[in-house]
Design a protein around this nucleic acid. Sequence first.
DNA 1: AAACCGAGCAACCGCTGTCTC
DNA 2: TGAGACAGCGGTTGCTCGGTT
Length: 322
Amino acid sequence: MGRSPCCDESGLKKGPWTPEEDEKLINHIRKHGHGSWRALPKQAGLNRCGKSCRLRWTNYLRPDIKRGNFTAEEEQTIINLHSLLGNKWSSIAGHLPGRTDNEIKNYWNTHIRKKLIQMGIDPVTHRPRTDHLNVLAALPQLLAAASFNNLLTLNQSIQPDATSVAKAQWLHNMMQVLNSNNTSSSVDIHHTNYNIFGQSSFLENRPNISENLYDPTQSISRIDHQPLDSFSSPLGVFSHQDNEDMIPPLISASSDGSKQTQMMIKNKEILKHNEHTSNPSSTLTFTQDHQSWCDIIDDEASDSYWKDLIEQTCSEPWPFHE
DNA sequence: AAACCGAGCAACCGCTGTCTC
DNA sequence: TGAGACAGCGGTTGCTCGGTT
């Protein structure tokens, strides 16, 4: 495989494009199409390499490019898709009409990534970070997470009391820490019945927050407003009175039906739905066609944690029909 | 007003995958 | 089948601009 020699040629201009160069490029592509990018600069009278022309066109001059800030919906879509596809910016861009891979990549690195980190979520794995063992220090991050989630669910008719949820989660975790001071805080997923969302650090015990961040159809409003000594998780209501000696984890994650898996499944449904409707900008809804989205996701998902889950899920009976 | 700093983003670099001969 | 040519992709760089001191 030889490397492209086009940019090795000397004497070609680099750096920012001038309006004159833009005009030349636009006029040429309007008249003749881009054809071979390598040949284009000469034909268009540009002292640039073909690669530079292609980049300028696809990232800036293309007429269908959408300008302006990303909407909350677009941001949510990017997060969902990134959780499934990783840094496959061009694939993600394919689901966001008018947005370029470069733009999405920049937006991820400058905005979303920071938000996720502040929320205690690893932007690479989309799992809670394990370096937040200081329970108290993590509270502001959870609150930030809750606030961010509110932002993402602006179109939901019912707004949650995120602060109450955060406080409840924090209290729960405090009690868990106090009750488990003789146990390791690390998680051994091979020898426990809980996944990382259900064990250990404060942020890992925030299923409602993390789940709803990724799942645009599940509003945090599912959580009833309750006193701090009793609150619900998607899997049930937790109360101090349940067990004074051993606080149960807020979420269990048996291999056959973790909330994490459900979350991932719904994300994949969104992806599949968008592809099948050929309308990526359509409202994110779910379909019930289990096998077909598995087929599609198999093509796009990376060799990651998600892929393992996908394979596992696709090999099992569909458990989530409503 | 000037210097400094950080965020944002356009553009480049270099690698990979695919096609063709 | 292997090598070269090319397009595309993801990571990185460096410039610009706005805010702060």
